[in-house]
Design a protein around this nucleic acid. Structure first.
Length: 188
DNA sequence: TGCCCGATTAACT
DNA sequence: GTTAATCGGGCAA
């Protein structure tokens, strides 16, 4: 059986945790799959929500590692992050794409799409497919409804610039599973 | 207070 | 290629 990822896994540099998450599996109430794309956001990074200090929205980022930070994107979509580093560091990994493996019927119904490749390929899409919303903000990742397991075996991880940001846009802090058809966007 | 922008997406031309 | 949807945060006034 795969090893469950506990809080200690996240109590490290966000730049170590992010690539280590590629190939891990995430389920929310049994629905989900394999993480194939993530991005790292450090509190010293101008693109990070925590860069300018705590607010109501980003408060969870300033708490201990191993918890979910969920925020509303463009006033429309939900996006989920995993908080990393010792408490107060305010760094997190944005989950950007999942290769679906469980709960296809529910995901298709929630997404209103039968295109398997588009079910979880994008931070907003995966939250819709897994039904992640503000009620998951601040929940621990090692207890239900979350289930998170370490990858088994070796994977090839590629890195490149993050997507959709203007500040620190050149930093290669997007990580993906090499060649995966479920990436939100291919790596150059 | 008001205005602009954003870790996005789908539906347009 | 462009644009609308829609709201929290940053910053000027």
């Amino acid at each position: 059986m795969p090893k469950r990822l506990t809080k200690s896994f996240f109590n490290r540099s966000v730049h170590e945790v992010a690539p280590d998450l590629i190939g891990a599996t995430l389920f929310v109430d049994g629905v989900g799959g394999r993480l194939v794309e993530v991005e790292a956001y450090h509190h010293t990074d101008p693109a990070a929500h925590s860069f300018r200090g705590p607010t109501d929205r980003n408060a969870i980022m300033f708490g201990p590692p191993g918890y979910a930070y969920v925020y509303r994107s463009y006033g429309i979509h939900w996006c989920v992050n995993f908080v990393c580093e010792p408490k107060g560091s305010a760094s997190a990994v944005l989950i950007r794409a999942i290769e679906p493996t469980a709960g296809f019927a529910l995901m298709r119904r929630r997404r209103g799409s039968s295109d398997e490749r588009l079910l979880c390929s994008g931070p907003g899409r995966l939250c819709e497919a897994l039904r992640i919303t503000s009620r998951h903000n601040g929940l621990a990742l090692d207890v239900p409804p979350f289930e998170l397991f370490a990858r088994q075996g070796e994977v090839e991880v590629v890195a490149g610039p993050r997507i959709g940001i203007t500040k620190a846009a050149e930093k290669p802090w997007r990580y993906g599973l090499k060649g995966s058809p479920f990436l939100s966007k291919p790596f150059a």
